[in-house]
Design a protein around this nucleic acid. Structure first.
Lengths: 238, 238
DNA sequence: ACAAAAGTGTTCTTGATACACCCATGG
DNA sequence: CCATGGGTGTATCAAGAACACTTTTGT
């Protein structure tokens, strides 16, 4: 893995999506510092300046791996942000120069989207970096232009998952119910779907295979669990 | 418009598509130089290192405007390329350092796609920069990683135009025949479409309005001309 | 028994596909 | 009169949309 000197002109930022079963979340990093004798405490996207001899995808992967410990991540570049205005806030500059111990001017950042399963293994890693899952509908003012990046990332995943739904199963746990998938659909595409029509389509997805397990201790009829079969999926999608 | 010092760490490259009525072309720039006492002559994408205080979109727009003289261009960022390998060819380095009169190390480039109408006005501008329309199926070895960029650009436009066909009308002349649109479809999506089914759909596109003009001096029944109505189009597409 | 979500079919509408002949024009 | 591409309709099929009741389980 590339470890050399930093290349402080280009960075990567990762918008990491996770699904709780109820809400769509993204992973944000707490940041605190002092600006003009005022303490502040806000959030930013996980990201990093790239190394001198490091490819962009590798840099995004490095950020993700360090933060979550996960390998084999669904990770896609989606847009680059290079407005000279994006580093105009002096607070951001001070913070960043502290973080990388370099004088920086302008930085162009390459945005990446990652889709992961929210799990418990992850939490340990996250705590070290003060990472928190935040509801996508309830995100405050972020550092730099990160609010814009998040918006664009959302647009991207919606469009992307529309013609390749594989990402939905990156967000769901290994075993999931039909209702969880339906709920995820509704949240991502912002639509109400008809239960019976959804069921019919669901049954026709041969890459979603039923398990012999059902929910337990739920105050209603227990739902069956299913799993996603990547091999069958790849056979179908050319 | 931003004119300051160059920022030789980030560039933009434009993949400019044009349609002759028969073939899909891209606009390439002739490049020549000497490398190890050998003359060479090859092609590259139009592009430029960005300026210190210039936004990415503005830089791409600047490249396009200087080259073609066109304003109001269909222009979209599609992907960024930052492999450390992309500037490994010493010939490319020498050429670029000559061109911008700066020492350069690594450069991350932001890829843009433009769709334009091949016209006569354009040619004057192009000649100055030694620009040439090249059939997309017949492109040799390009400078840097430009072959990879072109491939990715093609993937992008195909996907993009599939769910927003407005770009098709950026490629066609102001007045066009049904056959020209059909032909363009087939070339971009790589499919044969049924003439009668296409006709039925064509008639249902209210934003394609028939003109009272027909082809002249063709050795067969003259086809009607149509034009694209952007206003009607925008009314329909939310 | 009741609350809460699971599970399940039919009809209708719409869009996509398959398919073949006559027409207008220039040479 | 012939070669070339323009212009047109019908029947079938597949996918999506609308719509309501019974089953299971815990409290």
């Amino acid at each position: 893995m590339p470890e050399s000197t930093l290349y402080p002109h280009v960075s990567v930022d990762c918008v990491i999506f996770g699904f709780t079963g109820e809400k769509l979340n993204i992973l944000l990093i707490s940041r605190s510092g002092i600006n003009e004798e005022e303490c502040y405490n806000d959030m930013k996207l996980p990201g990093s300046v790239i190394y001198e001899n490091e490819d962009l995808d590798d840099a995004a992967y490095r950020v993700l791996h360090e933060l979550t410990g996960i390998k084999n991540i669904y990770l896609q570049q989606f847009h680059s942000f290079g407005s000279p205005e994006r580093t105009k806030n002096p607070q951001d500059i001070v913070w960043l120069e502290n973080a990388i111990h370099m004088k920086i001017g302008r930085i162009v950042t390459i945005g990446y989207v990652a889709l992961i399963k929210i799990g418990q293994k992850l939490q340990n890693f996250s705590d070290k970096y003060e990472a928190h899952w935040c509801d996508i509908n309830n995100i405050g003012q972020l550092a730099f232009d990160h609010n814009i990046i998040v918006e664009k990332a959302l647009d991207y995943v919606r469009l992307k998952l529309e013609d390749d739904p594989i990402g939905l199963y990156e967000l769901l746990p290994k075993r999931f119910t039909e209702a969880e998938l339906r709920n995820l659909h509704e949240i991502i595409f912002g639509t109400k779907v008809d239960i019976r029509n959804f069921h019919k389509k669901f049954l026709s997805l041969h890459y979603v295979v039923p398990l012999d397990e059902k929910q337990e201790n739920v105050a209603h009829r227990a739902a069956r669990y299913y799993r996603f079969d990547k091999i069958i999926y790849n056979q179908i999608h050319r």
